[in-house]
């Protein structure tokens, strides 16, 4: 049975799609059969980030409506044969996602995959609620600023009250904090909250900290998930995140301001 992961946030533009693409790719590279689903109906861009936008024929809503089957709609990743993308529809409205329809698709996928990663839209409307409803694990994507933390808190409330696990009184969703666009220098000047501040307020386990990085924009422009770029700090931070998700104990990197060390100053870098 697959584990269903929702990448959620409440607030828009914090890095959910970037993270969904990176984490799904990372899991697949670790040998886990993974599918990543775009729940952002009408504003799809997971396929862009994954670099498969030209191969979209059918989408998630087609499958829900029985107009296509899963094998027709899922796109196999070019780089990794354990990875599949189920794109969102660009045209249909969000109410196409019904609980029964989504439940059925996830149930079918669960038989075949190890991980199902759900890229949630922003907000707390139907699309976001459907993305989190069936989750076993929630990756609460948060930027180190007050409004994002507040929205994450709101989403945590939803996970605890409006999910399948909550409604059926099952073991609660495992909630993780993923702090993205972290800039140690701006934390130092007090413009941003620190890792500790956010952990204190949200009181959930930290899964990873992804630094603010030029590499992210570069990666999305070229349709390659940033985790593939193992030269970049963001790519490495996502790899660490995936390792922790798989139960490894990995120290958190890139949370202090980079200083040129003594040796580096002497010998250059």
């Amino acid at each position: 049975m697959a584990q269903i992961i929702v990448v959620t946030s409440g607030k828009g533009g914090v890095g959910k799609t970037t993270s969904s693409a990176a984490i799904a790719t990372g899991l697949a590279l670790k040998g886990k059969k993974t599918v990543v689903i775009d729940f952002d109906i009408g504003l799809r861009n997971l396929d862009l980030i994954m670099g498969c936008e030209r191969r979209v024929v059918y989408d998630f809503v087609n499958v829900i409506n029985g107009e296509a089957n899963l094998n027709q709609a899922m796109i196999k990743d070019k780089r990794c044969d354990k990875l599949f993308v189920l794109p969102a529809s660009q045209t249909r409205d969000k109410d196409a996602l019904t609980k029964e329809g989504v439940g059925k698709v996830l149930e079918d996928l669960a038989k075949e995959f190890d991980f199902i990663v759900c890229d949630s839209p922003a907000g707390i409307e139907q699309g976001a609620m459907m993305a989190l409803y069936f989750a076993d694990i929630a990756i609460v994507t948060t930027n180190p600023e007050v409004s994002s933390v507040r929205d994450s808190d709101r989403i945590l409330g939803m996970l605890q009250s409006r999910s399948r696990r909550a409604e059926q009184n099952l073991e609660p969703i495992k909630e993780y904090l993923l702090l993205t666009r972290y800039s140690p220098s701006r934390v130092k000047t007090g413009e941003m909250l620190s890792v500790e501040d956010v952990k204190e307020i949200l009181a959930i386990d930290l899964l990873g900290v992804i630094p603010e990085s030029q590499a992210v924009l570069k990666a999305s422009n070229s349709g390659v998930p940033v985790i593939i770029d193992q030269e970049s700090d963001a790519g490495l931070a996502y790899s660490d995140t995936v390792d922790r998700l798989l139960g490894e104990d990995v120290p958190v990197r890139f949370i202090t301001e980079e200083k040129k060390g003594f040796l580096k100053r002497i010998f250059g870098s």
């Binding site: 507040r150 808190d153 709101r154 605890q160």
Partner: peptide, 8 residues
């Protein structure tokens, strides 16, 4: 026995 979140 849990945190009470924004909106709850």
């Amino acid at each position: 026995k849990q945190n009470i979140r924004s909106g709850q």
